[in-house]
Design a protein around this nucleic acid. Structure first.
Length: 302
DNA sequence: ATGGGGGCCTGCCGGC
DNA sequence: TGCCGGCAGGCCCCCA
């Protein structure tokens, strides 16, 4: 068992967990505890978010994309990325008591208490019903942005390839994208412009399921391997989302931290273990490609 | 255009 | 026991 980094299934799990708590709610206060994460927060970020209503909480690749309606009724989008260690921590509103009247400027007593005691909380939000949403990110590889206009024109989203679980991702598309690509299939699948949402872990797992060596050049995949690879990618992601979904049942608690559910992997992080495939006694190997670990079974993957 | 590598950033872990 | 190097990797950016 190990905790998965935020790739598509983890981000989707976060989305599903948070959406029912924040959709349709107005942001009463938003506090930044530092001027930047990986990038500086956009100018007027807090001011624009404050008083805005979160209309819909969606996902694109590994990005969370919230449709917002500001105080004047204008639409904009709040984009966030969890990076490597980013987490949203949700605290549902405590039950109000009769004497819980506004203190200053309409702030209720129950809103003054710190919802969580944790290091590395960089953003705090309070919604109109008292729901707290904090963003913590020790390594600050995550970031947030504000998008005016069509979200697909955001520089962060413009170059993304198809969603791996959508109809735009299929064997013909993947085969065409692989034409002439001399890079190993491992690197190829990590390229978010090829298919958007895979990270190191699920690429390793998908290649294992498809029986393809991470070393194989993308251009040499061929129709047969692509025909195995596409469903392998879909299956591994869909199963991981299911596994994440099963953790949501316990979500609405005090420490509502999200996105790092436990999950079993066949090869990732298992160097030296015997391959889990039936009748295979080879050892799972680790190799470094472009500075990243690949795990694979040299017997099952060619 | 494409591929490869550096840098960001902190927590953790193994070795001495 | 404490220190320290290596490692983890998503994504942008630069260079060949």
């Amino acid at each position: 068992m190990m905790a998965a980094m935020p790739e598509l299934p983890e981000v989707e799990t976060v989305r599903r967990g948070l959406a029912p708590h924040i959709e349709g709610r107005r942001i009463k206060r938003l506090t930044l505890h530092r001027p930047d994460l990986r990038f500086p927060f956009p100018k007027d970020f807090a001011a624009h978010m404050q008083g805005a209503t979160l209309v819909q909480f969606a996902r694109r690749a590994k990005y969370l994309l919230a449709e917002m309606q500001d105080k004047k009724g204008a639409r904009f989008y709040w984009l966030s990325h969890l990076g490597m260690t980013g987490r949203f921590i949700l605290t549902p509103p405590p039950r109000k008591t009769p004497d819980d009247t506004p203190r200053t400027a309409g702030v209720y007593a129950h809103e003054l208490a710190a919802p969580v005691a944790e290091k590395h909380i960089h953003v705090d939000m309070v919604f109109d019903d008292g729901t707290h949403l904090a963003f913590a990110d020790p390594r600050r590889f995550g970031f947030m942005d504000k998008i005016e206009g069509a979200p697909e024109r955001s520089p962060f989203l413009a170059r993304l390839g198809p969603e791996p679980l959508g109809n735009d991702f299929n064997q013909a598309v993947l085969l065409a994208a692989a034409q002439g690509r001399q890079t190993p299939v491992k690197n190829f699948l990590l390229d978010q412009s090829v298919v958007a949402g895979l990270g190191n872990i699920y690429v390793c797992e998908a290649l294992f399921i498809a029986g393809i060596s991470p070393r194989r050049k993308a251009a040499n995949l061929g129709v047969k391997r692509v025909a195995r690879l596409v469903p392998a990618i879909r299956d591994v992601l869909a199963r991981a989302i299911e596994a994440g979904g099963s953790t949501l049942r316990d979500f609405a608690h005090e420490d509502g931290a999200m996105g790092y559910f436990q999950h079993d992997f066949k090869v990732y992080g298992r160097a030296g273990d015997i391959c889990s495939a039936p009748h295979c006694s080879a050892k799972v190997m680790r190799l470094v490609q472009s500075g990243r670990s690949s795990f694979y079974c040299p017997n099952c993957q060619r």
